[in-house]
Each structure stands twice: as C-alpha cells, then as structure tokens.
Amino acid sequence: MTTVKNTAVKQRDIVEQIRARAASDGDGVKLKRVFGGERPERFDPFLMLDEFGSDEAADYIGGFPPHPHRGFETVTYMLEGKMEHRDHMGNVGLINDGDVQWMTAGKGIIHSEMPKQTEGKMRGFQLWVNLPAKRKLIPANYNDIDGAAIPMYAWDGLQLKAFSGKTEINANAVTGYLSVKDTEALFVDIHLQPGAVADIALTNGHNALAYVYDGGVTLGEKQVVTRAQTLTRFSGNGNVVIQNKGKNVARVLMLSGKPLKEPIVQHGPFVMNSSKEIQQAIADYQAGRLAS
C-alpha cells in the first residue's frame, strides 16, 4: 500500500458528515442534494452541491427550463451525457462527457440547461460558489471548458482532474484550469486506485469539503470509513488525507476555499447579503431588469 507522505503535517479533523438526500429541481429532474440550505455559513464560500445521475430518461428529460440567477457562480461538471446551455446573452453551449461549465451570474443571468439526449446515462454535478458583496453585481459571464483542456495528473495510484485552484497532493504541485478571485476555490476530482493515498495540502483557515461519489475511502488520522454519497466537512487547519483500502476505484470531489465571512441570504436562485437586496433582485426580475 502507498504510504502517506509528509506525515509530520497536521491532518484536519472531521467536523461532520452528511449523506446526500433525494430531491428534485427544474422540471422534475431527480437528483441528490449533497449540501445546501440550512446554515450555509458552514460551507462558506460554497453554497450548494447537487449530484444528478440516471439512465432513465424520465428522471432527467424535463431539464432546467429558463430561470434566473444573481449573486454567485455555478459550476456544472458532466461525467456522462449531453446538456445544452442557453442564456439571455445569446450564449449557446453543449457540455459533454468530462466537460465543465463555469458560469458567473453576477448582476443577473437568465439561462436554461436542457438535456440533448432522450436515452442513456446522464450523470454529473452542479456546485454553487458564492461571490463577495463587492462583486455580486458584476456583469454575467459564461465559460464552457472542454474536458480535454482541463489539467490532468497521475501518480501513486491517483488520477486527478483539476478544475480550479492550486494545491499539492503527495508533495506534487497541482494547478487547476481556472484561478478564482476572492474565494481561491479549489475544485479537484480525485480517483484513487485500491491501496492509493492522497495527502492534500490546504491553506490554513480555508474551509475543506470532500464528497465521495463512487466507492469508499477512509479519512484522517482516525481512519473514518466513508462510503459513497457522503460529504465530509473538515476543521480549519492542516492537510486532508484520503485512503482507498477497498478493492475498487474510489472517486472523490475535493473542495476548499477562502471563507468570505459575509451574511448569506438566499431566496431560490438569488444569493445576496441582505433581505433588502433579495427584494431588489425579485423586483428587478419581475420588471425585466435583472439581466439588463
């Protein structure tokens, strides 16, 4: 079995573990809500993570018809399937297996996300990343990222896809496709072969989350056994160590970011810093000004 490198570095404690729960969104799309809603400051700067996945077209075919957003960013990562994005700015993009869409809603965007398939497997994730108060009303922006352009790494029985941020894993530098302002968001998909270990260096004070979506792993010095569809939130200082002691490949999304430490007020697709700003977002949407 691969040994953990740099064992002198403190490992983060596990603060809580959450099981993803069944939910639906859009036009009846069945999904798993990993986290989001109650006490959002726990995950700061992240707001929500959904996992969607089914090989039954009825579970996803309704998609997500036109809807608004303001005040944060959405990150859609497709494992399998085809999803088309359209927005009020005239952007049209198709994300396929392995592709990522990073969308900054900012002041406001109205978009749709609709399946471009009527059969077969569709599986992926959507992550919401908060914006600081000073940037909540910046112009909307849309970025389609081809899966082939996303940095990939392999060593010590690990395969990595690095979407954003910087870190070291087993003392090897990892740099994501994007650098995210203010939150310094780290988003990495880690695949661990049986026996593999990932020792992930993180900035002290940054919040850290790990979501196991396939297989099972052990986490931290206490070797906490963690199965698929479980989110783990860690304490604020030290590294995160993930080990695969099983017989199958384990797949984990690793998230870390600088907390904004600002009030979080959410009303559906709007995330602002006060109730007054939420009321303004609703009024702007109703008056057709949200995305102007």
Rank of each mutant, 00 (worst) to 15 (best):
M1I: 00
T3Y: 08
K5E: 11
A8F: 06
K10R: 15
R12D: 01
I14N: 12
S24L: 07
D27I: 03
V34N: 00
E38F: 03
R39S: 14
E41V: 13
F43R: 10
D44P: 04
F46I: 12
L47N: 07
L47Q: 08
G53R: 04
D55H: 09
E56L: 05
A57Y: 05
Y60R: 01
F64W: 07
H69D: 07
R70A: 12
T74Y: 05
T74S: 09
V75Q: 05
M78C: 03
M83A: 11
E84K: 15
R86C: 07
R86T: 00
H88E: 13
H88R: 12
M89W: 07
M89Y: 11
V92M: 13
I95V: 15
D97Q: 13
G98I: 08
T104I: 09
A105D: 04
K107M: 11
K116C: 09
E119F: 01
E119S: 14
G120L: 00
R123Y: 06
W128A: 02
V129S: 11
N130T: 06
P132N: 11
Y142D: 11
D146R: 13
I150P: 03
M152Q: 14
D156C: 04
L158N: 06
F163C: 00
G165E: 03
I169W: 02
N172L: 04
Y177I: 05
K181F: 08
T183R: 07
L186A: 02
I190V: 13
Q193V: 03
A196F: 06
A196W: 04
A198H: 06
T203W: 04
L209D: 08
V212Q: 00
Y213M: 01
Y213W: 09
D214W: 05
L219H: 06
G220P: 01
E221V: 08
E221M: 00
K222W: 03
T226C: 04
T230F: 06
T230R: 01
G236C: 09
N244V: 00
R251T: 03
V252G: 03
L253D: 05
L253T: 00
P259W: 10
L260R: 02
L260G: 05
I264S: 14
H267C: 06
G268Q: 15
M272K: 12
E277C: 13
Q279C: 08
A283Y: 06
Y285R: 09
Y285V: 04
R289V: 03
L290W: 00
A291G: 02
S292T: 14
S292G: 14
